[in-house]
Write a protein that binds this DNA or RNA. Sequence first.
DNA 1: CTCAATACGTAACGAGCGTTATGTATTACT
DNA 2: AGTAATACATAACGCTCGTTACGTATTGAG
Lengths: 208, 208
Amino acid sequence: MNTAELSIAKRPGRPLSFDREKALNDAMLQFWRTGYETTSVSTLTNAMGITAPSLYTAFGDKESLFLECLERYSNPGPKTTPELILKAPSARQAAQTLLESSAYWFTQPDYPAGCLVASAASSGSETSHRVRAALTTIRKANEKALQRKAERDVREGRLPKTADARALSAMTIAVMQGMSTLARDGADRKALLSVVQAAMMAWPADQS
Amino acid sequence: MNTAELSIAKRPGRPLSFDREKALNDAMLQFWRTGYETTSVSTLTNAMGITAPSLYTAFGDKESLFLECLERYSNPGPKTTPELILKAPSARQAAQTLLESSAYWFTQPDYPAGCLVASAASSGSETSHRVRAALTTIRKANEKALQRKAERDVREGRLPKTADARALSAMTIAVMQGMSTLARDGADRKALLSVVQAAMMAWPADQS
DNA sequence: CTCAATACGTAACGAGCGTTATGTATTACT
DNA sequence: AGTAATACATAACGCTCGTTACGTATTGAG
């Protein structure tokens, strides 16, 4: 008996009768389509193919379910977006990769248009402040990572001394957010990629 | 008796006991703060200082009230934003004016942060599709006006022949949308103005 | 003064919200 | 086999939603 088997050792009691991962994914897609506050629990249970008590047993409540969906959405791979930014060869290339992958991600066929983080709860009442805080945290983490990367590039000469690292990263994040709205309004992948190309003109070329 | 007096001739029956303009303004501010679907009628009536039947008498229903607020918000002056864009000396200057005034508008003290149009209903259920359509229409009208202005500048030599009018205008609108989110997340006026400065680097200089 | 028309305050409507109590079925452990 | 623990399905909870009857008060017209 190895540690892996230990970590998935079955708890006592009746096990879940549905695939928790699939249900979570279905919930994420529904939130992606229709936001947080405007998606009801009954809409969720329909999309997930389970009943309300099952949802509460497996995920706690609506807010916890959303936060878990958010985690799944923003950390789909082994590396987080801030980590990817910091590992890029330059801030400029990190920005370009971020925007280009966003252009792809926001226009995937058979997926909701735009970005879950950008469009889930840009406004909202006071009752969902934890949700809004989580969304803001994700957005700011990306911006901060890009900013630090750009500041380092200025220090190390990959960007001109006159470059405004903070402004460039905030502008890049703004373009990303805005592209989500463009996608929701019907812009296709080609249009978004041309937006990326235009926005990257604002970045000074990497100094060699 | 002139035509102005005729146009405000009193209708029969008891007049409204509150200032309709002030109530409309209060409703707009509330929608601005908390969005469309997440703002309840009771929240609105509290903010407006009237009762629900008064709201329905004066404004129809929640959706009509929001659409009227939207008109008031997006047409505050004698000229619409598309008109201002078309009258600017160049597309580049129109974009700069649009972004700079947005930076100011999104960070007014004692007003909600960000943009009502950008944050009211970026996602949402199917029941509010008329509201979402109205918001999309406003966004697209601005983008289209800027695009036409830029296309004319390319034709008339104010912009280089290689400039992508569509991409530049879409990028500019994206930055504007994104700045609204930045403002909601706490960015101050100075930060937004530096974002504008950075974004404008993507626009080729006007040819003289 | 009467009448028609509109707004007002109170109170309530049906519907849907997020959530949970209840009893039963299914599992693991002893 | 028996017990503890968990999930299941059904049904309902209290609450808020957007909206509106209903009766009364206030206006202009004749």
